Amino acid sequence: MVSQEDFTIVKCDSCGFLATSPRPADDQLGRYYESEDYISHSNTKKSLFSRAYQIVRNKAVRDKRKWVEQHASKGDLLDMGCGTGHFLNECKTNGWNITGVEVSEVARANAKTEHGIEPLSSFDEVSDSPAQFDAISMWHVLEHLPNLNEHLQKFHTILKENGALLIAVPNHESLDAKHYGPQWAAWDVPIHLWHFSKSSMNNLAAKNGFEIVEIKNMSFDSFYVSLLSEKYKNGSMRPIQAFLTGLRSNLAGRSSKNMSSLVYVLKKAV
């Protein structure tokens, strides 16, 4: 992977939850993001792959906004790990009151330069006051957070009663994950501290007072992850092979909601 270091995925015998081991100290995690390969922070457009990523992202942010609006009344939205602010800008343009949290100084600077958005630098800066937000979104962020239960408990507090929490994470039970095995790019150790399946996400939600009301496939991710996985496995992206693997993964996971990445829509449990 990008870090060129060795890590192990360990499994909890009782619940089946997967975690990265050894887990880097919290104050060491930041250095693993300091790579131009991490283009959601750098916003680079130097390579063909990076330019394609930017084009697809423009459509993806529109889809994400529509998903949020299917489950939450338009109002106040918190986006955790907002990166360079493209999704927040899409929501702001369409009438949402936005708040973003982003730990990367580079990404925050890009958000301000490109969109005039100034994200908070830490979740601690978000007030603990109850029922602040109509929607909370996390697009490939939960797998990065050191303290899962603490975050979800605070989300439960600050989310309005009829609000929605949308969480996108990689799915290690997808066909592309099984195809690439240890070279599956979405393991992304060590910055991915946790690795989710539908059952482990359901358990995590229930433990923190939520229920999953819908699961959505993220069809583009199968191709994106397969491209990176080809690079890790074979030394080059091999776009034809990656496309075919991504397509097979999408076809296999379409009806069962088991593609490379899934969006979980959570509501407060009654």
Rank of each mutant, 00 (worst) to 15 (best):
N258E: 11
V225A: 14
E214N: 07
N234V: 05
L247R: 09
L193A: 10
V265P: 00
Y224W: 13
S249G: 11
G253A: 05
E214C: 02
S261L: 02
K207I: 01
L251Y: 10
H195I: 02
S260Q: 06
F196W: 05
N258T: 05
A242Q: 08
A252Y: 11
F223M: 08
K207Y: 03
S226F: 03
L244M: 15
M218D: 11
T245H: 09
N217P: 10
E214I: 00
N250W: 09
L247D: 09
L251N: 11
S249E: 06
A205D: 02
G253C: 05
L193K: 04
L251I: 15
D221K: 08
S200L: 04
G253I: 07
V213M: 00
L244I: 13
S229H: 10
S229I: 13
V263R: 00
M259S: 14
E211V: 02
K233P: 06
S261V: 03
E230L: 05
P190Q: 09
S197E: 03
S260V: 02
L244K: 14
S255R: 12
L251C: 11
M218V: 13
S260D: 12
S200G: 04
F196T: 01
N202D: 10
S219I: 08
N234Q: 12
R254A: 12
L262E: 03
E214A: 08
Y232T: 09
R254Y: 13
F223Y: 15
G209V: 03
F210A: 01
R238D: 13
S199Q: 12
M201P: 01
S255P: 00
I240P: 10
A206R: 11
N258I: 03
R238H: 15
I191Q: 12
E211S: 06
Y224P: 06
S219C: 06
E230T: 08
L266W: 01
F196Y: 11
I240N: 10
F223Q: 05
R254T: 10
S222T: 13
N250T: 07
M218Q: 08
F243Q: 07
Y232K: 09
Y264G: 01
M237A: 13
F210S: 01
N258Y: 00
L228W: 06
A205Q: 01
R238C: 12
N202A: 12
